[in-house]
Nucleic acid binder design. Structure first.
Lengths: 168, 168
DNA sequence: CCTACCGATCGGTAGG
DNA sequence: CCTACCGATCGGTAGG
């Protein structure tokens, strides 16, 4: 019988269990059992449970952040930037549904100072969205509206999409 | 110095901490510390941590369920039932934001067999919403659409509202 | 990838 | 509402 667990398998199983039971409720022994290895062996793949969360969270958060940065620095008109933003959200959510689930459900369990860094990253992201919306209002392409509320509306669509994808 | 913690205080503190840290990450000692009592004293107010979660979850879930049952058995037209449903959601979310937060974030931590009962309750709720939408389509009051997706759209609005209320 | 552990913490109980 | 605990579990380490 082949042993040898790959790092990719370890990550996939971790993400699946985090989504099913939540980060806090998932123990290293849960993950190990699913991989048919001992709990101690997990530390060949990762430094700590917290480092695992950190890596997964910033991996997907950075993809969102970088994607939106590229859109913002483009020469698109505001409305086209908005379309590109929705496209980015759909694409990332479809490609990384479990990462997005972790992002939405378990970012609170990041420990300081990384938690603050994460929140700052998210606030920058929201700020970029709001700026695009405000620019669209100023050019007249968007009817006057509360940019803050519109930002929430756009961002909450991410949550909705991943919920349908993962089927909760 | 007055001692004496009321049960209402205990519930309020528990809900606040569950929202801030999540159910699993909140320990009985966290709650006790916030109330300036010993952890053991908590068991004068509740039988177990699981029973606390159970009580809070079904309290709010039943309010949603009963509210929608009343709407469904009314003689309103489908579109007016839909309006009453949105009204119900807004009202309960504004009145019980922390209960709703717990409902959205921590229902997974209910243990069997109560977890299954909870999921069944939610599926009935979703089924009632879907039926109202389907009735509205049949009478022509609503344009033809995918009732399942429309149901998700209505229900996801709950999440969005409580997120704004609690400010995450 | 495993054996053999360990210190810390957690939910909870006994008995006032 | 407290003191005094306890069994179970958890993240993690040492040393192969």
């Amino acid at each position: 019988m082949e042993r040898k667990t790959t790092r990719a398998q370890f990550i996939a199983v971790s993400l699946k269990l985090f989504q099913q039971k939540g980060f806090k409720a998932t123990t290293m022994r849960d993950i190990a059992q699913e991989l048919n290895i001992e709990a101690a062996t997990i530390y060949n793949y990762i430094k700590s449970k917290q480092a695992l969360l950190d890596g997964l969270l910033f991996e997907i958060a950075n993809r969102f952040h970088e994607g939106l940065s590229n859109i913002e620095s483009s020469s698109y008109a505001p409305v086209d930037k908005l379309k590109a933003l929705v496209n980015l959200n759909v694409r990332l959510t479809v490609e990384y549904p479990y990462h997005v689930a972790l992002l939405v459900n378990d970012w609170k369990h990041l420990e300081e100072p990384r938690r603050s860094a994460f929140v700052k990253n998210r606030e920058e992201y929201e700020g970029m969205v709001r700026q695009i919306i405000q620019a669209g209002i100023k050019t007249g392409a968007l009817r006057p509206m509360d940019a803050e509320i519109a930002t929430y509306a756009v961002l909450s669509s991410i949550r909705w999409l991943f919920l349908s994808l993962i089927h909760i």
